[in-house]
């Protein structure tokens, strides 16, 4: 059997993936060059087999010449799994420890970066309405993938997600029932249009786009896991620059501030729920 000496050396496919990322950036400005390779390569391979490309160079040829193909490919590269009230503990900490501080603001701005199909933004909107802050808050919900944003702004989800959503909601310490905020029918459930009024869905690329200023809270969950540490540092700095002094940062349950530059400090509101507060 031939064995490969790994060391620093990349194999043929790995080299081709590097070239492709460079090409996408040069041609269309999509910048995946600093994405974590382990999962990125797997998704490239997956896209090739789903779309019947035997060789990466054929895919690259097409991607350089065909914008539509590129948009399709970028959708294939991003992972859009999400849920209503995913990780109830996170929302419980927001409810119990962040909301009381938000009350002192006449106007509240929240940024959900990498919101995917919108469940997270609606969950927050429900929570804020319950706490009587709905009228005062604006939620900016952004993602790189325009297709998921379209879905998000509809606010319609499949009924099979409902069971978990109800259960999660129950565990967040809410005083109502989830069903007070949705209507169910035709195997779907629809978010109350009232909850949509203060959510703005727009496309935003965390790698290439600018800050969203003066936020009281930035929530970016399960997006940084797709980035290498250097890119995490850059994006965490972007969040820092988007946050008001004393503003809150919420991350995914397995994400940390380990990539934060030394010059920036946060206070942990709840370390295990990944809720932090900007202190300088």
């Amino acid at each position: 059997m031939v064995t490969v000496d790994r060391g620093e050396q990349l194999n043929e496919f790995e080299v081709e993936v590097e070239c492709l990322m460079e090409a996408l950036y040069l041609r269309w400005g999509y910048d995946f060059r600093e994405y974590s390779r382990a999962s990125l390569r797997r998704r490239v391979a997956r896209y090739m087999s789903d779309n019947h490309f035997q060789r990466l160079c054929d895919l690259q040829h097409d991607l350089i010449r065909n914008k539509k193909r590129c948009v399709h490919f970028v959708r294939g590269l991003t992972v859009n799994v999400t849920d209503m009230f995913r990780d109830p503990k996170f929302y419980r900490v927001i409810r119990e420890q962040v909301v009381p501080e938000l009350r002192s603001h006449p106007f509240i701005k929240i940024w959900h970066a990498g919101c995917s199909t919108g469940e997270e933004a609606y969950s927050m909107s429900i929570l804020l309405h319950e706490e009587g802050l709905g009228e005062r808050a604006v939620i900016y919900a952004t993602d790189i993938n325009s297709q998921v944003l379209e879905q998000a702004s509809k606010g319609v989800y499949h009924e099979k997600m409902l069971l978990a959503a109800r259960e999660n909601y129950g565990a967040t310490g809410g005083s109502n029932r989830l069903d007070d905020f949705i209507s169910v029918g035709y195997e779907r459930f629809l978010i109350d249009p009232e909850l949509k009024k203060n959510i703005v869905f727009t496309q935003h690329d965390l790698v290439t786009d600018q800050v969203f200023g003066e936020m009281q809270m930035v929530i970016c969950r399960n997006v940084l896991i797709y980035f290498r540490r250097e890119l995490q540092t850059k994006v965490l700095t972007l969040f820092h620059n988007s946050l008001d002094m004393g503003g809150f940062l919420g991350l995914g349950m397995k994400e940390s501030l380990r990539s934060l530059p030394n010059s920036i400090r946060y206070k942990a509101i709840d370390e295990s729920a990944r809720v932090f507060q900007r202190v300088d």
Partner: peptide, 21 residues
């Protein structure tokens, strides 16, 4: 490996989690 995430390893020998299907 934490439940509900895929556990991968990047070239620089750090863990990298993913929510791929």
């Amino acid at each position: 490996a934490p439940p509900n995430y895929h556990l991968l390893i990047d070239n620089d020998r750090v863990f990298s989690l993913s929510l791929d299907a």
